[in-house]
């Protein structure tokens, strides 16, 4: 049965590495930082991780088909602002408001997908435009004075425990879809070789559009969570640098930035690592600048490892 164990270890190598690193970090922090290992602090931490982890799940989908979506934070902010605008200025219902947020974000993702799949535009550029449009939309709607505060029910319902449940549900469902369903498998096929996928009878245009829509939807879920935690929406709630967190979470989680492999589960753990790191650096009083630098170095390093892996694989294959 050692063969089976070997298989399992090999299949879940990334997962085990991630868990090991996170566990190590956790142990060191519980020993050195006061009040780190308390339920309160840990649940707070998970609440902070949730939006990034969910968006990196969406990013994983996009990266797996060999695409790129850097509009996520901007879409998140735009959808949140649209939703809050609806709930406050237009006096809409809170539940409906949450759905407005989700739909807006999904729709923006769909536009990305349409431009990329049907109009054959470059993903980076399309999503870059969407980033400006999203930021513009959020800025216009929130106006100079910002949006009013939401009624307390919204934040009360979406408290940190609900958020953790949402986080787990999203990660589990999206991971399951990616690994265990026909749709998910098709994403891997497209990311590996789009032409073979087409010859095998896979409608890659349609699937590409759905994938970008899912990425948008993930931004929408993150928008709902963020809206609840600040009880309103601001145009600057999705800063550009957040996309770095999102993509690095996925890349650290072993998602190949050039498409074809990766798992939502591992990307979410990548998010735990990245956000956890930021959190710890804040706790230690490290300035924001260094944090960004460290994160930038991490993503470049992770990509270096990714391209080194490709290099190794090519060598082995030949």
């Amino acid at each position: 049965m050692s063969g089976g164990l070997k298989r399992f270890l090999n299949d879940n190598k990334q997962l085990l590495i991630m868990i090991g690193v996170i566990a190590g970090m956790f142990i060191i922090l519980s020993l050195t930082v006061n009040n780190f290992c308390t339920v309160r602090n840990l649940t707070n931490l998970l609440q902070q991780i949730a939006p990034i982890a969910i968006m990196s799940a969406g990013a994983t989908y996009v990266l797996v088909i060999g695409g790129m979506d850097i509009s996520n934070p901007a879409v998140m902010a735009a959808a949140a602002v649209v939703g809050v605008y609806y709930m406050t200025t237009l006096g809409g219902n809170l539940v409906a408001g949450a759905f407005v947020i989700l739909l807006t974000a999904a729709f923006m993702g769909l536009i990305n997908g349409f431009a990329i799949a049907k109009l054959k535009m470059v993903p980076m550029v399309v999503t870059l435009s969407m980033m400006t449009v999203g930021t513009g939309l959020a800025t216009i709607l929130s106006g100079t004075r910002g949006l009013p505060t939401l009624p307390a029910e919204f934040s009360d319902f979406l408290n940190k425990y609900t958020v953790i449940v949402i986080l787990l549900a999203v990660v589990i469902i999206l991971d399951f879809i990616l690994v265990r369903t026909k749709f998910g498998r098709m994403l891997y096929y497209i990311g590996n070789n789009a032409k073979t996928a087409r010859i095998s009878g896979i409608d890659s245009e349609k699937i590409t559009m759905i994938t970008y829509t899912i990425s948008g939807l993930c931004a929408g879920i993150a928008a709902v969570i963020n809206t609840a935690s600040i009880a309103t929406a601001r145009a600057n709630m999705g800063p550009q640098s957040q996309i770095l967190d999102i993509i690095s979470a996925a890349v650290i989680g072993g998602v190949n930035p050039n498409g074809g492999s990766g798992r939502v589960r591992d990307a979410a753990l990548g998010a735990v690592l990245i956000v956890g790191l930021t959190n710890v650096m804040n706790l230690l009083g490290v300035s924001d600048y260094y944090t960004t630098m460290v994160k930038g170095a991490i993503v470049i390093g992770a990509m270096g490892i990714a391209s080194f892996r490709v290099h190794l694989a090519a060598k082995k294959g030949a």
Binding site: T181, K182, R185, M186, Y188, Y189, N192, N193, K195, T196, A197, I199, S200, G201, I202, G260, S261, A313, G317
Partner: peptide, 24 residues
């Protein structure tokens, strides 16, 4: 090599690629 195979995927997933309906 160019359009027949998913080179970086396992043999099994290559074999089932055109017939996923049967397994889902």
């Amino acid at each position: 090599h160019y359009d027949g195979l998913f080179l970086n995927m396992p043999i099994g997933q290559n074999i089932t690629s055109s017939n996923l309906d049967e397994f889902s």
